[in-house]
Each structure stands twice: as C-alpha cells, then as structure tokens.
C-alpha cells in the first residue's frame, strides 16, 4: 500500500482545494494522451516532477511504482523501436523480414516514439498517486461530491474504505483457517495450488461479508441514510485565490494544448 502518512507533511499542494487538484491532474492526464511527441511529453513530465517536488514527496515512491511497470515499459520500448514505421535509418540489423513486419533497420523515429510512449506511461502512473498522497481521503471524497459525483457513489467508496480493515482481518483469519485445513500458500511456483487457495479464500470471505451486510444496512437506515433532505457536510471546502489562479492557468493550458493539437503540433 502507498504510504499515506506522507499526506501529513505540509506543502503548498496540501493547501489547495481537492477540486483544484483533481481538475489540474485530470488535465495533465488528458494532455499526455493528446500529445505523442517526446518533447511535449517530456515537458509534461517536467511539470509533474515540479509538482511532485513542491509537494515534498519522496522520489523513492516513483522508483517503487516504476518497479511494477518495468516489464510493460520494456515491452513498449522494444515493440516501438523495432516495428515503428520510421524513415531515418540508424542501425541496419538485417534484411527486411516481412513475416514479422520488421524493416531490417532501427530508425530514429522508432526510438523517439518508444521513448515518448514510455514517458507517457511514467506520467500516467505518477499522476494519480500525486493526488492521493497530498489529499486526505475525506477531502478527496468531498471534492468528488462537490464535483457532482452522485453522493451515494461517494458514500459507497468511503464506506468501503472504512470497512477495509475489518475485511482485511477477516481475510487473514480465513487464510489461517484454510492453512489449518491443509492448504499451503507458500509453495512457491505451484500455480494451481495458489489458485486453489484463492478460491478457498474468496468463497468464505464473500459469504461471510454478505452476512455482515445486513447489520450494516440496519445501521445505515437507523442513521437516516437516504432521508429525503439536503445533506450537510462536516468538512467544507472553499476556493481560495490560489485555487482560482491555478484553475485559470490549468484551463488556459488545456485550451492551448487542444488548439496546438488541432493545428497539428505535438503529434508524432
């Protein structure tokens, strides 16, 4: 799990309204998909890294994340380098191999495009943690509700989150109970043994948790969930001048980005 304690650090990012961050980071996400030129994506990565730095988040988190995406990053790079239909020949490896669509040489365009796609992957993978690591979850939920996400949907997310510890301890007990019945989780490499173990975990977990749902339902009704009145919130958030400023800049960048893209810039 990501280290949530980091959110307690003070940084300009924490002071921003949840909505501002959500919108700004969504815009980065849209822009990184909009452009495919390595220079443009590199610029976006630069912006994300500046935000990461200003939020005082450790670089180690990015390294940890990247571990999980190393394989897909390598696949992306290799496929693009070898098979991108480029013109500028850099290294000739062999004669053309039509069966696999390989032209026989590595092109500058292929390398640049591969790099662009890997950079895109990096930006995509660190945008979401950037939001989460700088915003306490209640604030994030409030931001979502204020952005007109249906309250009941936000309620499901927050309730799920508060149920998580009890579900996890239930799952741990079930795993222990299964061990006592002779299941082994630790036989490394035995694929089907592990598969069988996850079956033995899920069935009792789902059935047991659904049994608890009836209690939760009563608790919800007895606390007037769904009462036909306008809800008020304990937490409230207000836009500050900085929020407005950042939103204005964000929207300006988005519009510029879209215009550039329509004019044909930033496409590889």
């Amino acid at each position: 799990m990501m280290n949530i304690d980091m959110r307690t650090r003070k940084s300009p990012m924490q002071k921003l309204d949840g909505r501002t961050k959500l919108i700004a980071l969504s815009v980065i996400f849209v822009l990184v998909l909009l452009f495919s030129h390595p220079a443009y994506i590199l610029a976006l990565l630069g912006v994300v890294m500046v935000i990461w730095w200003s939020a005082k988040l450790p670089l180690q988190t990015i390294k940890d994340l990247f571990k999980y995406f190393l394989v897909i990053a390598v696949i992306i790079l290799v496929v693009q380098i070898f098979f991108y239909p480029g013109q500028t020949e850099l290294i000739r490896l062999s004669n053309p191999v039509p069966a696999i669509g390989f032209s026989g040489f590595i092109t500058l365009e292929g390398i640049l495009f591969g790099v662009a796609m890997v950079l895109r992957l990096v930006v995509i993978m660190i945008v979401a943690p950037l939001m989460v690591l700088t915003t306490p979850l209640p604030e994030l939920m409030l931001a979502l509700v204020k952005l007109k996400i249906p309250y009941r949907f936000a309620f499901i997310m927050t309730t799920a989150l508060s149920l998580l510890p009890s579900i996890q301890s239930h799952a741990a007990i079930i795993q222990q109970a299964q061990l006592c019945r002779g299941i082994t989780y630790d036989t490394a490499g035995k694929f089907f043994t592990k598969l069988r173990a996850s079956v033995a975990l899920l069935v009792p977990l789902i059935l047991g948790s659904f049994r608890d749902s009836q209690t939760l339902e009563i608790a919800m009704s007895s606390r007037a969930f769904g009462a036909p009145v306008k809800r008020t919130f304990l937490l409230d958030s207000q836009f500050s001048k900085i929020d407005y400023l950042i939103l204005a800049v964000t929207i300006a960048i988005l519009v510029t980005g879209i215009v550039l893209r329509i004019l044909g810039f930033g496409v590889y």
């Binding site: 799920a160 749902s213 969930f225």
Partner: peptide
C-alpha cells in the same frame, strides 16, 4: 422511502459497499 433510496438496481448500498471493500482488500 429510506430503504428504497438505499438501493440501486435492486441491490442495497450496504452490499455494494461491502463488495467494494472486498475488492479493495
């Protein structure tokens, strides 16, 4: 009406929350 509003597509919000929690776990 409380109970009726606590349901989406016939399933109670409580069950959906628990499903989501299991999903996260």
């Amino acid at each position: 009406t409380y109970k009726a509003r606590g349901r989406i597509f016939g399933m109670s919000i409580a069950v959906m929350s628990i499903w989501a929690a299991m999903y996260i776990a």
